[in-house]
């Protein structure tokens, strides 16, 4: 009898130990999952912080690029127009009434153009103009400015009903556009810049291409975001930051195509 009882009690003790181990396992699991949760939350916070920093950097870069553009615009366009107006007035002969009237009329038109251009430029001095005007209008404006230089033909093609992608995402997309255009101006030897915006029901896509000389992506590092080509890497990282897919293809003597795809925000 005691032998049997010993066996029963041993069984009971083992069962209790198994139950306690089950409880211990639950606790370890809870502690482990909680630690993972902590890590995940910290990572999320770091990512948010990085995003905010990147956004701030993007804003600063946009401002810098805008000021550069404005400076160039004042120098190349408004300055020239006003100089011409000044020259017209300086060379006006008061004795030749017909010529004088013509020159005054020309000067008046030139000054009016300069005023209009200044008005347009002043809008861009507003630091939040991308948020205020929206992505499509901001790009349109950027292209107008480039077109005015006379060196480039520009075209903005739109498809679908325009919707907001969110001011932060639009800001980053606009900065990508600026960066691509800046690269085209500096390196592509192109005379045509086209931007296509497609507002699909599920997907927003933005395509920029030129008719320039193209380049070897392997050398610049476009295929490998971790490789060289800081500008391309920046664009790639920024696209990733807003959950967009960024791709760039370039063919020798046939230009470069940049493609950015972003799911429509819900």
């Amino acid at each position: 009898m005691p032998q049997q009882e010993y066996a029963i009690v041993t069984g009971i003790v083992i069962t209790i130990i198994v139950f306690l181990l089950a409880g211990f396992f639950i606790l370890v699991l809870v502690a482990y999952i909680n630690q993972r949760k902590k890590k995940h939350i910290e990572e999320k916070k770091t990512m948010q912080l990085n995003f905010q920093q990147e956004l701030l950097r993007t804003q600063l870069e946009i401002q810098e690029q805008t000021l550069k553009n404005i400076s160039q615009e004042i120098h190349d366009n408004i300055g020239q127009v006003l100089s011409l107006a000044k020259l017209n007035l300086a060379t006006a002969d008061l004795n030749k009434m017909e010529v004088l009237q013509q020159k005054i009329e020309d000067s008046r038109k030139l000054v009016a153009k300069a005023i209009q251009d200044l008005r347009d430029l002043s809008k861009r001095l507003n630091t939040d103009y991308v948020s205020d005007m929206g992505l499509a209008r901001s790009i349109e404006y950027e292209l107008e400015l480039i077109q005015k230089t006379g060196y480039f033909e520009t075209d903005l093609r739109m498809e679908g009903n325009v919707y907001s992608l969110g001011s932060q995402k639009e800001l980053i997309l606009f900065r990508i556009v600026q960066e691509v255009i800046s690269n085209i101006i500096k390196h592509a030897r192109a005379n045509l810049i086209v931007v296509e915006l497609s507002y699909g029901p599920e997907l927003f896509s933005m395509r920029l291409f030129d008719n320039g000389q193209g380049f070897d992506l392997g050398i610049v590092g476009g295929k490998q975001p971790s490789g060289g080509g800081l500008g391309i890497k920046n664009m790639h990282n920024r696209a990733q930051l807003i959950g967009a897919q960024f791709s760039m293809t370039s063919t020798n003597q046939k230009g470069t195509v940049v493609d950015v795809r972003l799911p429509r925000p819900t």
Partner: peptide, 12 residues
């Protein structure tokens, strides 16, 4: 968890 087993086998 321990008590459940304890009470089930309390007679033994």
């Amino acid at each position: 968890l321990g008590s459940v087993v304890l009470y089930i086998f309390i007679d033994a």
